[in-house]
Design a protein around this nucleic acid. Structure first.
Lengths: 205, 205
DNA sequence: GGCGCTGTTGGACAAGCGCACAATAGCCTT
DNA sequence: AAGGCTATTGTGCGCTTGTCCAACAGCGCC
């Protein structure tokens, strides 16, 4: 009933969709759920989004993009590439809450059927890899890291993180978040010829 | 119309479900699709499976279990742990066809909503990790590998494989199957203190 | 202050879903 | 050959989904 500007309304819809997605997963999110969360009618959503695909993609873009931006800006506070990489892992612990990774999982699976979601998750995934690759490249140029192919190293570190998080989230395995980070950090240190412990972020809350 | 023994019929349903799942994804597979694929009525499926959850779980169990068994038996042909590990990677290339990994992806995502699927994917995932861990343990005992914690190493190798395959399948990235294997092999060699190239499986078709 | 534009409503709609159930058809036993 | 058991059928119920659309309401402009 209360009138909003188009921009505000669009924003409100995305936030509502995000809340629902976090609560019950991307695949189970329906137009009616989102409308009910906002306290408005369901028809309103289609006034701002062409299809459910677009809405889910926009909401996922918001969530994942926010995490990416937060990590990126936090990393700039690091003095050099090694500190920045250390911050990357430390932030990753916080960024990848239980629900955040479940969202990524949903997006990957849903990508097979929903073009907009596929485009979005693809774009954001590459952005994460690029963030990592740039840091590694800087480290190599500064002579504080050694790495044959920064692109490949970035893909591998990211994949190990994702793969481990997958095990931790999809099933309840003997891997909690702390272990995921510890093992990933160890791998990154070896891959980049860093002394053991130089990326050591104590994963305390 | 043709009468089958209960065991045969159950088998036929699972195989049909598998075909449909491969064709259009686990989440989009319906009772009617499976029935149509078999050329029978939809009611028949519920005569053999209590719910859709059970059917999907059984079909996934079949597909993933088959791959696991094939890999396990092929590995026994290796003379020692190192050869067996090499065979593991070589077989993984073949086992993880495009559709096979998409199935794993679907299973991980569906696990949040479907108890039977969760149980199955969890069990099979651990089985894969155990296969790897046992081989590594044998290698350590034979003194041909070095590894502080075989369990952890197995989790990491498997996670890197899965993580990389994720990137390759969910989006079409600059990672094809050959690269996935090459990078995983390199990681395994480093992690297990093996000489570079000792796991070298040429990933030719 | 009336008017028109547009955000907003709420329900209709067709399609599709899992599942259940009475009726049918085929095989095995006696 | 008859009877009974069960695999199999086909349909239909209840529900949910995304999308659409005619009616309504509130805001800004002449």
């Amino acid at each position: 009933m209360p009138r909003m500007t188009p921009a505000e309304r669009r924003e409100a819809i995305i936030e509502a969709a995000l809340r629902v997605m976090v609560g019950k997963g991307m695949a189970a999110t329906t137009v009616r759920d989102v409308a009910h969360d906002m306290g408005t009618s369901s028809g309103l959503i289609h006034h701002y989004f062409e299809s459910m695909d677009d809405l889910l993609a926009a909401a996922f873009d918001r969530a994942a993009g926010r995490d990416l931006d937060a990590t990126r800006t936090t990393m700039t506070r690091g003095a050099g590439p090694v500190e920045q990489l250390s911050i990357f892992f430390a932030t990753y612990v916080r960024a990848e809450q239980d629900w955040a990774f479940q969202l990524w999982l949903d997006a990957w699976a849903e990508a097979a059927r929903r073009p907009a979601v596929r485009e979005t998750s693809q774009r954001l995934n590459v952005a994460w890899q690029q963030l990592l690759a740039e840091t590694i490249r800087a480290g190599v140029e500064h002579g504080v890291m050694a790495c044959g192919d920064p692109e490949a190293a970035a893909w591998c570190i990211l994949s190990l993180l994702d793969g481990l998080a997958l095990q931790a989230v999809a099933h309840r395995l003997p891997l909690d978040r702390r272990v995921v980070i510890t093992w990933s950090v160890a791998y990154a240190e070896a891959e980049l010829s860093l002394p053991s412990g130089s990326l050591g972020c104590d994963a305390r809350q």
